[in-house]
């Protein structure tokens, strides 16, 4: 065996490596040429010792080069074949990745609940704590402490559901304002709360009424709180809710539990104030009632109106949701139709 023989042997081996089409065949090639006991190249190497010292150097060099070349060719081919086999295995596990998925996914928010959370976030930024109160109330908290004695004309718009005996002393609150009372009675000022919750009025269901609906009440009581503060707070909140550009106006109103009383309107989004069916040709849409807490109401809540003042406001997230999302019927909010819920 001469260095030239070795070169020929190597060339044959390289060819067989290239031809091996599976890891198994490649292993056979490896054994034939590089097998530890009788590989052809291995055997050539064993002859090295028998060579004369002067020949040994040249042959040795050639042997190292050849075996190195074969090893790396073998490794390369092995990597290549292994990758191919992994590909084949994965191909066998083919799935239709374009198949529409069905899985739990993320559930959806209810538009009203989502809006309430948004309002809570807006007011949390202004330092308001979200609190809750009972939905069943007594006449005292729902009306009398809020300056609405029996026969008060303002009770007209609060058509009330009363409970049957033996629970006849209770009614379904007609607004969230009784929680103002409970908050003032529970803690001395300063107070800064909002109260989301359900209320009920005896209105037959129609596109603009449901007998149960939601309100979000707000109350701020502290020293030196002014109507300007109410205005600034409402403007901030309404713009946060309806967008910076939306025009807001405050107009005088009447509620027995606030004095002065105001209502806030936003420009109608449909007609931008020109007048259309949505806003009943007014150009404005009423979205909340508010005012400076009446001194008598503060007193009923154990707050001294000489030292403290406050403002309160209340809005209807159901109506706001209908306006904001372009719905046409309040009753749709309580059907829980997934086609609607999936929009949120």
């Amino acid at each position: 065996m001469t260095p030239v023989d070795l070169q020929e042997l190597t060339a044959m081996a390289l060819e067989e490596i290239a031809r091996a089409d599976s890891l198994e065949r490649l292993d056979e090639v490896r054994l034939r040429y590089l097998g530890r006991r009788d590989g052809l190249v291995t055997l050539a190497g064993q002859r090295l010792r028998k060579l004369a010292p002067e020949e040994r150097a040249a042959f040795g060099q050639e042997f190292n080069r050849a075996s190195g070349q074969l090893r790396s060719a073998m490794e390369a081919r092995q990597r290549q074949l292994a990758a191919g086999e992994e590909e084949q295995r994965e191909d066998g596990e083919w799935v239709d990745m374009s198949h529409p998925f069905r899985g739990p996914g993320q559930g959806h928010s209810h538009p009203v609940a989502g809006l309430i959370r948004e309002i809570e976030d807006i007011f949390a930024f202004l330092g308001y704590q979200s609190v809750a109160g009972p939905e069943l109330e007594d006449d005292q908290h729902n009306f009398q402490l809020l300056n609405m004695p029996p026969e008060h004309p303002a009770r007209d718009s609060h058509d009330t559901f009363y409970l049957s005996p033996p629970a006849g002393g209770w009614l379904y609150r007609t607004h969230t304002s009784p929680v103002q009372m409970r908050a003032m009675l529970a803690s001395p000022p300063p107070l800064r709360i909002i109260v989301p919750g359900k209320v009920a009025r005896r209105d037959n269901p129609d596109p603009t009424h449901t007998p149960v609906f939601h309100q979000v009440e707000g109350l701020c009581v502290d020293r030196g709180v002014t109507l300007g503060d109410l205005k600034g707070t409402l403007e901030y909140a309404i713009r946060a809710l309806f967008g910076r550009e939306r025009r807001v106006r405050l107009r005088a109103s009447f509620f027995p539990y606030t004095e002065p009383s105001l209502e806030a309107d936003v420009a109608c989004a449909v007609c931008q104030g020109a007048g259309c069916r949505t806003c009943l040709q007014k150009g404005w849409i009423e979205i909340l009632g508010s005012g400076m807490v009446h001194p008598e109401v503060l007193r009923n809540g154990g707050v001294d109106p000489e030292s403290y003042s406050g403002f309160a406001f209340g809005m209807g997230p159901d109506r706001i949701a209908v306006l904001r999302y372009g719905l046409s019927d309040l009753r749709d909010l309580y059907e829980n139709d997934l086609r609607l819920l999936e929009c949120f």
Binding site: P104, Q106, Y334, N336
Partner: peptide, 13 residues
């Protein structure tokens, strides 16, 4: 909601 359930609201009546 994270578990795939959507939020419903009903009248309390």
């Amino acid at each position: 909601r994270a578990a795939g359930f959507s939020e419903a609201l009903s009248l309390s009546l």
